[in-house]
Design a protein around this nucleic acid. Sequence first.
DNA 1: ACAAGCCTATGACGGCCGTAGTAGGATTAA
DNA 2: TTAATCCTACTACGGCCGTCATAGGCTTGT
Lengths: 126, 126
Amino acid sequence: MARKTEIKLTRFELEIMEALWKLSRASVREIRESLPERRRPAYTTVQTMVYRLEEKGAVRRVKKIGNAHIFEPALTRKAAHRQVVDHMLEWFGGSARPLVAHLVEFGKLTLEDVREMEKLLAGGRR
Amino acid sequence: MARKTEIKLTRFELEIMEALWKLSRASVREIRESLPERRRPAYTTVQTMVYRLEEKGAVRRVKKIGNAHIFEPALTRKAAHRQVVDHMLEWFGGSARPLVAHLVEFGKLTLEDVREMEKLLAGGRR
DNA sequence: ACAAGCCTATGACGGCCGTAGTAGGATTAA
DNA sequence: TTAATCCTACTACGGCCGTCATAGGCTTGT
């Protein structure tokens, strides 16, 4: 079934992707500028990340403006997040239940959060 | 406030720890034997992991039997899981809400799961 | 036409991780 | 006592990641 080629992103790569998803299309410079100041490494560092994302198939070059390449995501935010979530679940035996149990235990989830969730599930059924 | 020294574990290190938590105390060999067959690398590989866990302060040597060292966890399962969860949350902006939203979106959480959670929260309050 | 500046392509490096081999000391079964 | 076995302490290595420098080609303002 022609596996959709697993694309594994690191945390920082995901941040680059987030920037790119927001921008839709952008040059390395634009991506760099759009990163929060506290997380803005050298130009070539960002460039390297973008290149590696390209190798991984997460972004692609769409055109050139002047001599600068313009990149766009080759992966939807949703698909990427799905991967991330799936990997996280592996840490908890593959099931969401224990993970959420931990969230609750550590007070990361309030009763309100959960009620909201429930509403979402009950309402958005199909 | 004398930070409790962050101990960052990788996935495999966590698996070793899980083994050790189950065993309470064990030698490298015992740890290795207790790993599921599909995940049982060479003896020295396990040894290296244990040594590195020792450096990270996650395990400690408690005694010797014959010439073999016996190790025990120097970190509770709960504390370790807390770290893991915290790191995961960072991927989602530090809040559990979006993470759980994704779980719901991708069908990893059922209405039942959430109701269970709610019961837990409502009941176990204080 | 040219200097100044921007971008690209490539190379590098150190740290962490998973993996394992090896030398040699310690233990044990005969 | 001695050979077989076990365990330790090191060393190594390649891959991935975050980090960046450098060389040189392209573009542009004057």
